[in-house]
Write a protein that binds this DNA or RNA. Structure first.
Lengths: 226, 226
DNA sequence: AGGTTGTGGAGTGTCGACAATCCATAAGTG
DNA sequence: CACTTATGGATTGTCGACACTCCACAACCT
């Protein structure tokens, strides 16, 4: 029987995820959510015991997070969640701006349709109306992710994703109350409009303005490290 | 005696480099020099025996190279030097162009002096005159490295360095004979001139043109992989 | 005190052995 | 013959133990 395609698909797709990946995912989500703050020490033996695995997968997981730029190792001394300086935050956002502008340029050059972006704008409006911070954040990320994907540039996408990890972390460490959800949501439709109008200068100006506004938002909050 | 600063400085500064780093360095240079071609398999046990270390540092070294984007792992099957597609080559150069344009913008915005760049131009001219391919390549990299550093943006610098690894590899795989050393060397002084003139548009145009010329150069050579 | 030299603990670095997985190929089965 | 099921080799994944490095602090000289 080669085509037994009709199982109850509930528990069908078993995945065999190496421990290091599971560990890395859990640590990453802890860092991105802010539960593990910048500067926190990561002790292999402690983590190994806590997660009930040996040190090897812990080490490899930590190295994966190092690639993500979320953790740093000081040889023979220890590993810790990379501290976030105000400068790094600023640099992260300025690089993001360059990435998104590059994406806009490529989208307009290629003439690919941008209809897909409307969907995310609506999701953001709904989230803002419901005053749902998490939903708005998710929709915002989905919007920008879709924008980058439209640029059809794998390396740009990978670089953007890596950069966005840090943005995720930064946002989790911010004070939520100070954000104006309505305003963030309302930033995006004009960008889509400019893209549909094939107005490169306006689209780029809007994207730049948008990312700069986010960057300017209270970077001082997170620099109580070290 | 705290200040015994007068030893024969021959064998003074002992460094204690972890094995994984030594292994990673050797493998990296093998890849960047083209001795390990894209697609080559990397077998942990073989490397371990060959280098006379255990598999642990080999594994960690390979993971470091994975972060560099030079190696890829297929779980339970093997690791290999990441194959280079024509698309990847093109994407690498286009991202490099964006990085360098960003650097130019920042340099002109900040008003930092660019005198340091002349030195590298001269080195390139000398190398071109001597028909020394390696020296020209090194001087070219030094020029662009210096340019990025002038932008005073750590994250940009790190991203550029990572990207340049692949460029290093690509150049090593190209056919050297087809390059016109004189012309490459002559590309750079006008860029410095435009920077000194604070002519943003001209500087950006020149940098873009320069990196695009490099990108267009024979990318087909290296796609005999897989 | 000022300076040097042990010493112990915390943590990472390295090792060798064993388990799990995948793939190709062979062996069985109607 | 078409199809399934063993089997074995190659390679990665995981483990537990031991070695090394670093740092802080005490002990010791002068």
């Amino acid at each position: 029987m080669s085509n037994v395609t009709l199982l109850p698909d509930d528990i069908a797709p078993i995945e065999n995820v190496p421990l290091r990946v599971q560990v890395a995912n859990r640590l990453r989500s802890a860092i991105l959510s802010g539960r593990l703050r910048p500067g926190s020490g990561l002790v292999e033996t402690a983590l190994a015991e806590q997660m009930n695995v040996s040190r090897a997968p812990i080490r490899e997981a930590i190295q994966i997070l190092e690639n993500d730029g979320l953790v740093e190792t000081i040889a023979y001394k220890g590993k810790r969640v990379k501290p976030l300086t105000a400068r790094e935050v600023a640099e992260t956002y300025s690089l993001r701006e360059v990435f998104e502008v590059m994406a806009v340029r490529r989208i307009l050059d290629s003439g690919v349709p941008v209809d897909a972006l409307h969907e995310y704008c609506e999701a953001m409006n709904a989230a803002a109306a419901a005053d749902n911070y998490d939903a708005l954040t998710a929709a915002d990320e989905a919007f920008h992710h879709a924008l980058i994907r439209l640029a059809d540039h794998d390396l740009l996408l990978a670089s953007w994703k890596n950069l966005y990890l840090r943005i995720h972390q930064i946002m989790a460490l911010r004070n939520r109350d100070e954000r104006n959800l309505q305003q963030i949501a309302s930033n995006h439709p004009p960008i889509v409009k400019a893209l549909e109008d094939r107005d490169a200068d306006r689209a780029i100006a809007l994207i730049s303005e948008h990312t700069r506004a986010l960057a300017a938002f209270d970077p001082a909050t997170i620099v109580q490290d070290l």
